Simulated assay, not measured.
Amino acid sequence: MARDAKPPVSAYIRARNEARMIADVARAALQVADEVVVVDSGSTDDTARLAAEAGARVVRQDWLGNGHQKRFAEEQCRHDWLLDLDADEIVTPELAAEIRALFDGGEPPRPVYRTPMAIAPPVGEPWTRFGLAKRCKLYDRRVVRAPAHAAWDQFAVPAGVKTGRLKNPIIHHAFADTAHLVDKLNRNSSTRARELAPKPMPVLALRVFFGLPFYFARRYLLDGLFRGGVYGFSFALLSAWGRWLRDVKMFERRKKEAERRK
Rank of each mutant, 00 (worst) to 15 (best):
A56H: 03
L50Y: 00
S234P: 02
N186M: 12
Q154F: 10
A87P: 02
D34E: 04
R114W: 12
F103H: 03
R260I: 11
R219T: 07
R129C: 12
A52F: 09
P7V: 07
E259S: 03
D247M: 05
R187E: 00
T128I: 12
H173W: 15
A97P: 07
T128W: 04
R14G: 07
R207F: 06
K137I: 01
F226T: 08
L50C: 06
R27T: 15
A5H: 09
N17P: 07
E89L: 00
R114E: 13
P158I: 05
V230S: 04
E257F: 11
V143I: 05
F233A: 03
A5K: 06
N168K: 14
E53N: 11
F130M: 00
L185T: 00
C77W: 04
V203W: 04
R100C: 04
S10E: 06
M201Y: 03
Q69H: 08
A205Q: 14
P126D: 03
L64S: 03
A19L: 02
E107H: 09
P121H: 15
E89S: 05
D104F: 14
A52M: 12
P7T: 06
D247R: 08
F251C: 10
S239V: 08
G106A: 09
L221C: 14
M201D: 10
H172T: 02
Q31F: 02
